[in-house]
Amino acid sequence: MGVELATTRLEDAVKWAKQSALDKTVNWGRKFSLFSYPFVTACCGMEFMSVAGPKYDLARFGAEFPRFSPRQADLLMVVGTITEKQGPALKRVYDQMAEPKFVMAFGVCASTGGFYQNYHAMPGCDQVIPVDVYIPGCPPRPEQVIDGLMMLMDRVQQGRTHNQLQRKREQVISELTSAE
């Protein structure tokens, strides 16, 4: 059980320690059944197929198989470059997912825009939706993806969700704006 405590953030460790046994059980079940919705737009999709295939086998971690509707998915995997024109579609897909939901930015294009700096490419899908885990790489190695997924599973076990991230962000923003 030491894996779940492997976090650098004290607040996470405290949060984990404060969780009730029921929360821990629910989160434990939740982290091993992340159904994914791959929003595949570009060449990273090849790497996604590799990591979802039998050799690297993402299903070992319970991210069992891609759903074909965002309503059935827990994990939105943004795989590949997002253009400004795709922004509304991505936001709509995200909004259709049921809570609790998690987002993984797969590859540098989804994380930061990658090597694109031009009129059409969005500098990271976090311009439109909140992101839990960023996976670097162009494309990322399957080991990196598995590492990112395990980080996400740690978060799920700690009970951290998007909304908490979002609340944290709002809190920081309000502090910043009130300081001015």
């Binding site: 400004e84 509304p88 700096q117 059409h120 439109v128």
Partner: peptide, 25 residues
């Protein structure tokens, strides 16, 4: 955008996250 005098890093986003602080870009 493919005119040579269009700034290469100019962005025209359709949607933005409402909780995101406005960056310099």
């Amino acid at each position: 955008p493919l005119r040579k005098d269009y700034p290469k890093d100019k962005r025209q986003p359709l949607v933005r996250r409402d909780d995101l602080p406005v960056g310099q870009k």
